[in-house]
Design a protein around this nucleic acid. Structure first.
Lengths: 269, 269
DNA sequence: CGCTATGTTGAAGCTACTCAAGTGGCGTGG
DNA sequence: CCACGCCACTTGAGTAGCTTCAACATAGCG
């Protein structure tokens, strides 16, 4: 989300929007579409020069190590708002690093129930849940026009065997995801609606600050229903809680735009 | 849990029970206790001969690879019921593989709230949440007298750079944990008490079957409060739901012993 | 053998859900 | 350009499900 991150806005503006109806699961995109969808070495600028380097898997790598990572990450993709980047059931081949924009990850279950397990911001890594099986576990959809780096997993694994720093960083990333979900579990499992929403807003705020955006004034890219699904509550409850926070002077709500007026008070809930 | 797994019952019976009051966090155990607590190469039997090999990180390794793993896993520990194996805040050094017995993992949060994020059975791996930081994220407590293999993480990482199959298995294990938590999130976030309990019982049942125990007649090692905490509900609700299932002929409840009378019906809830 | 921890059951209360009506913003087509 | 329809959001009223509080039963442990 949220204030759209556009380090390469100029580069993206000449990209045709991917057809939302393109069959992602069954047939591969036509060669033409494919050529537009993936680009090799845009501008020749790679991890070593990426604005998100501090946040993604390249974090804490030396320049030399980052250059080796460049040899693995050679393509990227654009995804239009509402388009599906990954579909549950598709074969697992790549990880994806968000360069710009934002995504939601939706896990479907036998009962037909769907659950959003994560919102991804620039620098975040998508697809970690696919490693354990041959196929993907969840749908990943763009919440706004977005771009991702494509990381072929087999190549990444090979490189992890050669570059100790990369291996360590990758393991840290997987473990962080486990910890993140455990925290979410606590939130959903044992906190009232009020505290869930407060924690959610503060989480977004913290992550936006880490990416250089305003931590107190931002635009939520997902719907109230998405937020509710993520936090284990109904959209009406999300809406009511926002309204209450506004009445109490904690935040200001203008549709999807949120202004945190008293983050400390939110934290103390 | 649950039917206690004792492939080495004879081996364990001569082990003194570790003093539950032993200060695990601050001072290390006395040398005497330490000598009992850790044993090098008991019986000389290692991964290559372990009954849990199919389930732990050694799964899908060749015999030759398993032998290399033996060089890394040289010690094991016993933990008495109620004892803490790992404490949040302790420095992260090792992973642990459950050989026998069972554990719960409790994450504490700033608010003082605690949440159980996992129950571990033989073959499960403990400590994955510690990788991303220098310190551990949660307390891990034995639900019964148990034994674990100690896996020094630095050595495991080194070996993962040399043994491709081990690396792959380790990544799969981390990813599985992510998927497991995502499923739990769905359960806690959007299912009524009834379905949570049903899913919980079936999950236990499935895992016991994979370990060679009866999937329909087992003893829960954790309290109703633990279950409730894990599933995001109060212990009274757990108890009531068990009683209702019994009234409806789905299960039989005898304290901690559970008999599944109609697993299919549970699944259809 | 008694104590404490754990589990069961009942009754009252509250949170969040369901159902429903109405508002506002945005894109599309007349 | 405005009107329309759609979708997201807000707000209200009534209700279901879970929690809280409390009393009692049972089991495990010293």
């Amino acid at each position: 989300m949220f204030d759209t991150f556009r380090p390469q806005a100029d580069m993206r503006s000449d990209m045709p929007v991917i057809d939302p109806a393109a069959p992602n699961r069954t047939a591969p995109p036509s060669t033409i579409a494919f050529a537009f969808q993936r680009r090799e070495n845009p501008c020749g600028s790679q991890c070593s020069a990426c604005a998100m380097r501090r946040l993604c898997i390249a974090a804490s790598l030396t320049d030399a190590e980052a250059e080796r990572l460049d040899t693995v990450i050679t393509t990227w993709r654009t995804v239009a708002k509402g388009d599906v980047l990954l579909r549950a059931g598709d074969p697992f081949r790549n990880l994806y690093m968000v360069r710009s924009g934002s995504f939601k990850s939706v896990t479907s279950h036998a009962s037909g129930r769907e659950h959003i397990t994560a919102f991804f911001l620039p620098g975040d890594t998508l697809g970690l849940d696919g490693i354990c099986q041959e196929y993907l576990e969840s749908d990943v959809m763009a919440l706004e026009d977005s771009t991702v780096c494509v990381v072929p997993f087999a190549l990444l694994e090979t490189l992890c065997r050669e570059v100790k720093g990369l291996q360590k960083q990758f393991h840290r990333m997987l473990s962080s995801e486990i910890v993140r979900e455990a925290e979410l579990l606590l939130l959903v499992g044992s906190m009232p609606a009020e505290q869930r929403i407060a924690a959610f807003l503060l989480n977004i705020s913290r992550r936006l600050r880490a990416r250089g955006f305003s931590p107190t004034d931002f635009t939520l890219r997902m719907t109230r229903e998405d937020i509710g699904n993520y936090l284990g509550m109904k959209l009406e409850t999300v809406s009511r809680t926002f309204s209450r926070f506004q009445r109490e002077g904690l935040i200001r709500v203008q549709g999807k735009r949120i202004i945190l007026l008293d983050p400390e008070a939110l934290d103390l809930l």
